[in-house]
Design a protein around this nucleic acid. Structure first.
Lengths: 345, 345
DNA sequence: AAATATGGCTAAAATGTTTAAGCATTTTTG
DNA sequence: CAAAAATGCTTAAACATTTTAGCCATATTT
């Protein structure tokens, strides 16, 4: 029952601790341990089920094989999904994940970043709120691999994986225009998060091309869902001519659906709806909601690849890898202009 | 830029390393370090921002302040939510979370448990699939706090936090009966997970009280969503008299909604629906879906409290704490029998 | 005056690894 | 044939802490 140490292995085989360690770390060849001995070591280690103490190992080598993953909110379907994918892929490559939710709180994020450092994570996968640029820069300077994802930070030069929300939103807006909707609103947050700004630019671009006025509602940040529903309700009431809404995030979309339901507005007859991010809710809703879907698998894959490139090819090429992925517009019923049958019912 | 060590602090203050360590660990009084010196140490430590190396600390003390959290699938709304809550509460009490998704895969779960041990987590919060009883028992014997949640494992005596799914499902079934639905099906998984069995017992109990036959469909486990939809579709087609469905989990419910939508069955006119677990989808669906909601906050709180009780009150009282929480039936439109107006449209 | 207690600190062991450097011996090389 | 290289290991330092046992001077008690 007593925990077994490398020392016990060495003693039992009557060799030095170093020999056992070298064999176990695959340096037998390199360090010229005879094949016969190497085999004996491996055999006995397997027999007694010896597992090196990772803490001691990490202390000595400075590597923990742990990746720090920071998301906005793990309870959000988008982040939960991306976390699941990143975890799976990281595990497959021998890394563990330690995660935190920032809730877009700057002070909290700072604490969490410090915590990751204290835990000596080998690499960072971060979706950060604006306001921690200095810390992020310091982290990058620290030399360990850092990959920003979902959103960038202004003036922080780091590896990154983002989705081209501008094009995504541009195409969604063009789609609504093509369907003949004339007063298209964008519901977004009052926030400097880069992905939100990009989405907004895409929206603006599409409208400007047609010389149409923007109709943007910025909801204030970090509110209770109930308050968001209320704000969206107010917005809809205040803009009776508005016939289509774009939601900049999935939870704005969810709350938007709630607001429209409470107002008794039919989708898409009274109001067309498009949301960013796909989810069960949007897919299964009646009517199904048109979304700008992010390529989750690809994002996760890119994050891990970029991170591991930094970890394994430790030879700092000084180059920054910024990956931009294309989202996909999934047109569903919520944004299809109903043929005006003239029939009521 | 060089990492600062306890040695540097000691040198600068011209005291021993031991003194600094004792002060930093709040043992100044106990070990009779003078208040004046203790203050000097604290001051200088704060000034230079010294943070002890957690790896070295953990190696020496055997405590990592990390909790291993194992869920079925972090991408599932229920587990994502519970993870978010547990993370928040753990962090507030000085513990970090390292998590994994088992995907109900026994071999994978075994690996992950081994991984947690290698990482020297201080405590375990586990939602385990059946099949790892031996490993779970070994873990409990290992002496570190283990809390099972969401589901138990047969013959594993450990602290646990579960929801009384039997009563929950019993009441849901009674509610459907009271509404006048006569052929009520339970859609569940072919699995020995204890929470699923409890839910099934609740369903059976309610029907037996009325001498009604059970109508249980066990779907096979670990399938693609598309296959689940297909299976549910087949079930509905095969049971034309069935007028109400209970779904034993949230994702069965989601796939059930999809199946009913594809079949063009109206809820609740053609089919009443009740699902286990609340979610945005069920709340916002049209019509809103009646659910048996689990008390998420309470669950997370209980898990953390039980875990920390084991961690802090290290004095093994040998007692096992099993907490059972009451779920809540949230009646929404999907299970209300429509008044038969006799009017078509 | 001797014994004991106390206050205030430190030396050093312990935690469990990895790995650079070293050390006999044997083999190869010019 | 001497020097160099290879062979097959081991010794011991290093990683950064915590904590036990103990030291020394002074104060108090007997």
């Amino acid at each position: 029952m007593k925990k077994i140490l490398i020392h016990d292995i060495a003693k039992h085989l009557d060799v030095s601790i170093a020999t056992v360690s070298l064999v176990l770390n695959g340096k037998a060849k390199e360090k010229r341990i005879s094949d016969a001995l190497a085999e004996r070591v491996l055999k006995h280690v397997a027999e007694v089920g010896y597992k090196p103490n990772q803490l001691a190992k990490s202390l000595r080598t400075g590597k923990t094989h742990v990746i720090g993953l920071m998301v906005e909110d793990i309870a959000n379907a988008f982040f939960a999904k991306i976390a699941a994918l990143i975890e799976k892929k990281a595990l497959a490559r021998g890394y563990r994940i330690i995660y935190c939710s920032t809730n877009n709180d700057v002070a909290r994020t700072r604490d969490l970043l410090a915590m990751f450092q204290e835990q000596h994570v080998d690499g960072y996968a971060l979706a950060l709120p604006p306001g921690v640029e200095a810390e992020a820069r310091a982290l990058v300077r620290g030399g360990k691999p850092v990959v920003l994802f979902d959103r960038l930070l202004p003036d922080v030069l780091a590896d990154a994986v983002v989705v081209d929300g501008q094009t995504g939103m541009y195409e969604a807006t063009r789609h609504l225009l093509a369907q003949g909707f004339s007063s298209i609103a964008l519901i977004t947050l009052h926030s400097a998060q880069t992905q939100l700004l990009a989405r907004r630019r895409g929206y603006a671009q599409a409208l400007h091309e047609r010389n149409l006025p923007e109709l943007v509602q910025e909801l204030s940040f970090q509110q209770e869902p109930e308050q968001l529903v209320q704000d969206i309700t107010d917005f809809v009431r205040a803009h009776p001519l508005c016939d289509a809404m774009l939601f900049a995030t999935n939870y704005l979309g969810a709350n938007g659906l709630e607001a429209l339901a409470r107002l008794g507005r039919q989708i898409p007859q009274h109001m067309a709806v498009v949301a960013f991010d796909d989810s069960d809710l949007f897919r299964l809703y009646a009517p199904p909601i048109t979304v700008i879907a992010q390529p989750m698998e690809l994002m996760a894959e890119s994050v891990i690849n970029t991170l591991l490139a930094g970890l394994e090819g430790a030879g700092k090429p000084g180059r920054v890898t910024q990956t931009q992925l294309a989202p996909q517009l999934l047109v569903r019923q919520s944004s299809i202009r109903p043929v005006d049958s003239g029939l009521g019912c």
